[in-house]
Amino acid sequence: MAIRRKLFASLTALLGLALSGVVQATADLNMRPGVTETSLEAYDLHMMVVWVMTVIAVVVFGLMFYSIIFHRRSKNPTPATWSHSTTVEFIWTAIPFIILIALTIPAVKLLIKMEDASNPDMSVQITGSQWKWHYKYLDHNIEFFSNLNSPQQTEHFEQPGIAAEPNYLLDVDNELVIPANKKVRFLVTADDVIHSWWVPELAVKKDAIPGFINETWTKVPKPGVYRGQCTELCGKWHGFMPVVVRVVTEAEFDQWVAKKNEERLAAEKAAAEAAAKSWDMDKLMALGKETYDAKCAACHQVDGSGTPPLFPAMIDSPMVKGPAKDHIDIVVNGKAGTAMAAYGAQLTDAELAAVITYERNAWGNNTGDKVQPADIQAFKAGN
């Protein structure tokens, strides 16, 4: 009797530790409940499976320890004469089968619901590239690139490992803005390597694969800011590719759309005026350095040394010292099969001309070439 009481006390203590561990994991390390209907359903399904697994573990390990202790050789020196029981084998086969079916039914229902992107209120195309996101609102004349907040990236390299704020390395220069209580369909693809667009609170995670378009959707019931990241190892700066979704009221979204359209028209006017000018070398070099540091230095390094062979050096580069037209081509159109992205749609003609001029004259290259915005316009017109 003393052994049984000790065994019962031990099993009770183990069960208590297991349950407290589950509760602690739920509080600190567990899957997030999220804010959407599908995210909450996914969380409930997850917790149901966790508790089913916990009960199964307690029963199985309880029976195992009971058998080890009370059917040990010293207590039962004479082994049983029977080899198996058909009834017991049927039971321990049928019970797991029933459990699996019981878990499969709600899981499949939720999966079908999460994949049903039909009848959206609006659609957004999401394109991943190294290492930024491009958002295009298919129902509005709005598109933009979303990059990691530049000061945070600089801060990271100057002081590795620091975490100066809660959203460290999770802020972007342009947030994806969507209205609350509207079904938003996302068409996810990539233009270089495989990425994955993930926002845990929305229960949205979809791979971005070059040449393919994957669908997913969300409907967020309340305004807020929800953060995520690229969850596919996509290259050197994979850890610097965050996602920020800002959910606003419908009225605020309409105001944002109007503001974005005004900004687009103003930017187009300013770009046209800048492109019509003939820039001197000092202005080209100043704008070129600013553009290079913001867009190119992450790969080719601030000093132009690059990280060969993946990112070639700009210093004494055959491409940089070769014909200017070839240099314009690779910056505007990128290079297939490499990490060199196309910047023709990301930068204005003035910025393109300036950064190419800077690369051709910085770090001792000194070609003396001045590329004007008019040269970029002529190149685009001829392609």
Rank of each mutant, 00 (worst) to 15 (best):
S20K: 00
A27T: 14
V23M: 03
Y43S: 04
L40W: 08
A42N: 15
V23H: 03
L19H: 02
V35E: 03
W51S: 01
N30R: 11
A42R: 10
S39V: 00
V52H: 02
V23W: 05
M53V: 09
S20V: 01
R32N: 06
A25P: 10
S20Y: 00
E41V: 07
A57F: 15
V50K: 05
T26S: 09
I56W: 08
M47Q: 05
M53Y: 05
A27L: 15
S39M: 00
E41Y: 04
W51L: 03
W51Q: 01
W51A: 01
A18L: 09
A27Y: 15
N30L: 11
I56L: 12
V50Q: 02
S39F: 00
M48F: 08
A18E: 06
N30Y: 14
N30W: 14
W51R: 02
T38I: 12
G21H: 05
G34V: 05
V50C: 10
E37S: 07
I56N: 08
G34W: 01
Q24A: 15
G21I: 02
V22R: 13
V58I: 15
A18C: 02
W51V: 01
V50F: 12
R32C: 03
H46K: 14
E37V: 08
D28G: 13
E37N: 07
E37C: 04
D28V: 15
T26D: 10
T38S: 13
D28M: 13
G34C: 02
L19R: 02
I56M: 10
M31T: 09
D44W: 06
M48K: 10
D44E: 07
L19T: 05
V50Y: 06
A25M: 10
M47D: 02
D44Q: 07
M47V: 05
M31I: 13
A42I: 11
G21M: 03
L19C: 02
V58P: 11
D28W: 14
D28R: 14
L40Y: 09
G34S: 03
Q24L: 15
S20W: 01
T26W: 09
T54Y: 13
V35K: 03
T36E: 01
L40E: 12
V23P: 02
M53P: 03
S20G: 02
S20D: 00
A27G: 14
Q24K: 12
G21C: 03
D28I: 12
P33H: 04
V52M: 05
